[in-house]
Design a binder for these strands. Sequence first.
DNA 1: CGGCCAATTGATTAAACTCAATCTGCGTGG
DNA 2: CCACGCAGATTGAGTTTAATCAATTGGCCG
Lengths: 249, 249
Amino acid sequence: MPSIITDLRPSPESSAIVRKLGAMTLLSELEIDFLESLQHNTVNVPAGMDFIEDGNDFNATFFVRSGWAIRYVKLGSGRRQILSYALPGDVLGLHVNFRRKASYSAAALTDLELAVVDPLRTIEISQNYPVLAAGLSWCTAREFAILGDQAVRLGRLSASERLCHLMLELWHRLRLVGDVDGPWFDMPMTQEVLADTLGLSHVHINRQMQKLKSGGLISVDKRRVRLNDIEKLIALSEFDVKHLAEFRL
Amino acid sequence: MPSIITDLRPSPESSAIVRKLGAMTLLSELEIDFLESLQHNTVNVPAGMDFIEDGNDFNATFFVRSGWAIRYVKLGSGRRQILSYALPGDVLGLHVNFRRKASYSAAALTDLELAVVDPLRTIEISQNYPVLAAGLSWCTAREFAILGDQAVRLGRLSASERLCHLMLELWHRLRLVGDVDGPWFDMPMTQEVLADTLGLSHVHINRQMQKLKSGGLISVDKRRVRLNDIEKLIALSEFDVKHLAEFRL
DNA sequence: CGGCCAATTGATTAAACTCAATCTGCGTGG
DNA sequence: CCACGCAGATTGAGTTTAATCAATTGGCCG
């Protein structure tokens, strides 16, 4: 019996979306195969390139297979607000069927491997694969919670709280798809990008990062970060793990 | 021919969700009747009362029939961030099927009339009423855009820009369900609530509102606001109407 | 007439921004 | 192998926006 269950669990070489959904529910081989077959049409986007542009026609759904993307809004005066990060296993444009044009831009933060899926196939999912349909619905609910957390950071947390809160979010999200190394994880964004995520200036980001490092809360090596005391970071930034971890199926 | 079409349009006494979906697409009588029948089980929530609590079990979907609600997160230190307003025609908890507990709280801002719907009936919708399913999906995409705009306000707009941007959003959203009176609309929140929406202190809200009034951009009478120059307000706050108006069906 | 909540005002403080250099790591062409 | 160039990180100084604290006022209801 246990062997059957482990056989059904996604293997490390599964695509990220399979690892993610597989971490919350048991997927059958049929469902895994279908999810993988959805992703046959892939495209590589080099770091820095936009692949969704605010106001443009938006006719595809993207599954992130590897790499990081940012979803952002550009303001006229040179300002930019990053709304969220798309990590491996995330899906962009799930509800694109009902929107003619994009209301945000998206760019590759690192080199990116995307699967391009015809959004009409999500209808096929909801009709033939109820577990996957539930999984995608769960992804939607989770994205809402993540964007809500982003609003909380921007509206009511101090600079250092914002930083801790964001790093905790990223660590938890990456852990779900197996992209962390214990307390270490890649954080491939520049301080400029971090600033546009957290609604701060890059100068202030720099100083607050130094404070966190010298306070021993985090360690940084190149573009990798180590969360040295997750409990303390959670308390310090009022992070709520439930927003990311809650699910039902 | 035109008479048939006008017959199909939702009449003013339709429920708010019918007015909202009817404003973006043509609903058949069958669809309208079904939407109305969903809302037979109603409940009245007095102003100030919470009806969804962060962390609690969350087993219902709510259709707002009349009144305003706020969706918010409470932080330990007495801070609060309001994530969004639920206006007549809005739906709360569409994706509740796949989440055991709420990741936010919701409270009645005014006296509120809600329809309480078993979330399992949304499955019935997607199977039997494709146009309504598309309509609800459109609502979801729109909620995302609205929450994204909220993040932009909080992260990258100045205090006065935030105020103008929010009032434009509310005016456009209310207009869709017929709850505006030309350039006038109800804005039933206190300055305290406004502050927790826009990530500012109520003192600062007060001063910025005075500046907008004395600048002639808005007029205020009790809890009603008049947008005196919508084009100027849009330019001033970098508001993007497309985020709310774009749709396809 | 209180009582109370919300709005308003004034004064001071603090967090974060801007501007302007400087420094560092790294890849590249000579 | 080295000088150069460049993007990103870091630092310092002065400024601005908005927060905080503390009253005071206004409107409304019982």
